[in-house]
Design a protein around this nucleic acid. Structure first.
Lengths: 144, 144
DNA sequence: TTCCCTGCTGCGAATATTCTCAATAAAGGA
DNA sequence: TCCTTTATTGAGAATATTCGCAGCAGGGAA
């Protein structure tokens, strides 16, 4: 469960510059412990300083995602959520019908994920992606 | 491997109306056999008629996704692709670094997917979602 | 076949995200 | 500490997608 300084160090090690904006953004999503939209992250930063732009928030979040320090996931309604891998690998099951999101943690699925990784030689740590389907409620209410 | 009439019938059975726009959109993505953006779908429809609006294309594609007749997948750069389940369940591995997309077919991953389904009682046929990670090339070029 | 109800469409506005580019500032070297 | 290089930022435009609403039309009822 890496601390926000670990994230910053990793960025620095990768040759990226550490700016006040990046520090604040990393601090916020590392300590939040849940998923946040770019808009939410910006509001949190705004509580500390007015010197922040939404484009910078998106760019920083993308940077974290590209370097494996955070994950992006599409909620399926035009919104995107971001989170660090701090609370461990997990999958989001997003219901295509009602939009409900169910979170599944690593211990439940490690076998499946390991298999995907072994087979495809694809580094996806922290595992964090979304699967869109129908939740039990929606399926029961409207069977095929 | 359902034919486009099957899709239309399913929509009708679900109580949705079949309009010329919906027919054309279903025909196009059912016969295309690959992923298409909403913009591409609209261009194809425009070859047949000018009576189509991008909002309708999005709405119809969403309708198909919600009813399990097609899948949406986020390419990670603000673009979204759609496809029917015609060519079978599969997972897209999207490289977070270079954006390359690797497609994995059902036979390769059925064990993993079955496990996810069994554990979480989540109907996700046709399985079709994306996992974002680092492809082998990018990982080799820029190890942690 | 005709009528009517209500779901669907097109249009334009709203929203979320990305892009462009000039100005700024981080970080290493002198 | 100061200088230099160049990555990063902010502002606003561009793009992708969704939303709201008024008018239209699919399809069941008569």
């Amino acid at each position: 469960m890496p601390h926000c300084h670990t994230y910053l160090k990793k960025l620095r090690d990768h040759g990226y510059r550490i700016t006040p904006q990046r520090e604040m953004i990393v601090q916020i999503i590392a300590h939040c412990g849940r998923h946040m939209s770019a808009e939410e992250v910006m509001e949190k930063v705004r509580e500390k300083t007015s010197s922040i732009n939404i484009a910078t928030v998106y760019r920083t979040l993308d940077l974290l995602v590209e370097n494996g320090l955070a994950s992006r996931f599409d909620l399926g309604n035009g919104k995107t959520a971001y989170a660090t891998g701090e609370h461990g690998p997990h999958i989001h099951l997003v219901c295509k019908h009602c939009g409900s999101v169910t979170e599944i943690t690593e211990s439940d699925i490690s076998a499946s994920l390991d298999k995907i990784e072994d087979l495809y030689d694809f580094d996806c740590r922290p595992y964090h992606f979304s699967v869109h389907g129908l939740c039990r409620d929606c399926r029961d209410a409207n069977p095929d």
